[in-house]
Design a protein around this nucleic acid. Structure first.
Lengths: 192, 192
DNA sequence: CCAGTTGTGTACCGATCGGTATGAAACTAG
DNA sequence: CTAGTTTCATACCGATCGGTACACAACTGG
């Protein structure tokens, strides 16, 4: 049992770069050549380290959720309903309209990859989205300060709808400050 | 001056089918082979009638805006601010979660086509989106019943954000009835 | 009939797609 | 050193991509 030739690149850093490419160009808009040039490695190394394109996307999506997108699950820990929603929306704005990262949301983008060869990427994104919304609903179900007439499931869906909308707006070029105004208006109307 | 061989297909009906394919699969997810089989014509006929893939997409997008998406501009004619928003949101739900048409919104989908060869499709979608939002803002600017503290531009952006979110939710599989509940909650909070 | 024009069908173009075979290079264990 | 193992680099695979050349069919005006 010997350990062969050491790999000449940092797999973690490479995955980060893959995430950035998928985030900017989407699953369908990213080719293997785009990936190999961005990662600075050649094709066989990519396949040996990450599997095929679908698996690499799945790993990048994983990193997206647990890295820059982690604020969404952290937001659930806020004490009040209002603060949960507030942090959730703030997270969406920073994530999708931040200046250091591509515009838009990777999961929202991937939902719209509906070509015949994109089913696996789309399904992976849908699974994360579904789980995220279920967690938000559970958080509201356990809340004691939910305003009268607000159903947990419906509120969760509305918040998710708004953060999705923010992602689309960010992908359309809307700036962070513009989205903050929109978010303030929505928040003050929804949970005054 | 003679009129050559008559074309063997209905160009209008073909364009409708092209729209449906782009709507369901997105610009990047739709190949020329998908189009020719869906339209029932062969490649040279498609190119002679509609130009290249980009031009066909532009024409399909045009038809989308002036056909099923026309409810968005009709909504602006409603008498009150509340009704404008109400119809706008209803339009988004019917358009993106209707049972006779593909799920999701073509312009929202196309914004997420950000591969290197999709710039023209993306730009066309962005132009329509920008124009639609400007029209909504102008409608609110001329409104006399705008609630106090509501800025026309911000409200227009929020409504657009919500309709975008609805489109994403519809593309994710959410049903029309679920979206109606979400829309009701949002509307009652925003314009009680 | 003929000439001119326009659409149709087939068969093809170079480029790129995702994915891989192959052999040399770089390491570890003995 | 050698044997075994893993990675790297090149070069390639069939399939599909968007787009087109070309010959023939179907029409109109004379």
């Amino acid at each position: 049992m010997a350990g062969g030739r050491p790999r000449a690149f940092d797999a973690d850093a490479a995955l980060d770069r893959a995430l950035e490419v998928f985030w900017r160009q989407g699953y369908e808009g990213t080719s293997l050549s785009d990936l190999t040039t961005a990662l600075g490695i050649n094709r066989p190394s990519l396949y040996a380290a990450f599997g095929n394109k679908d698996e690499l996307f799945a790993k990048a999506l994983n990193r997206y959720i647990s890295g820059p997108g982690a604020c969404a699950s952290v937001a659930l820990e806020a004490p009040t309903t209002r603060e949960v929603v507030e942090r959730m929306v703030d997270c969406a704005i920073e994530l999708t309209a931040g200046t250091d990262t591509p515009s838009g949301c990777l999961t929202v983008n991937s939902v719209h990859a509906c070509g015949p060869n994109s089913a696996s990427a789309r399904d992976a994104a849908l699974a994360y989205r579904k789980a995220g919304e279920a967690a938000l609903r559970r958080r509201f179900e356990q809340a004691s300060d939910l305003p009268e007439g607000y159903e947990p499931g419906t509120l969760a869906r509305l918040v998710h709808t708004i953060t999705d909308g923010i992602a689309v707006q960010a992908a359309s070029g809307r700036t962070r400050d513009e989205l903050r105004q929109v978010a303030d208006l929505a928040l003050n109307a929804l949970l005054p």
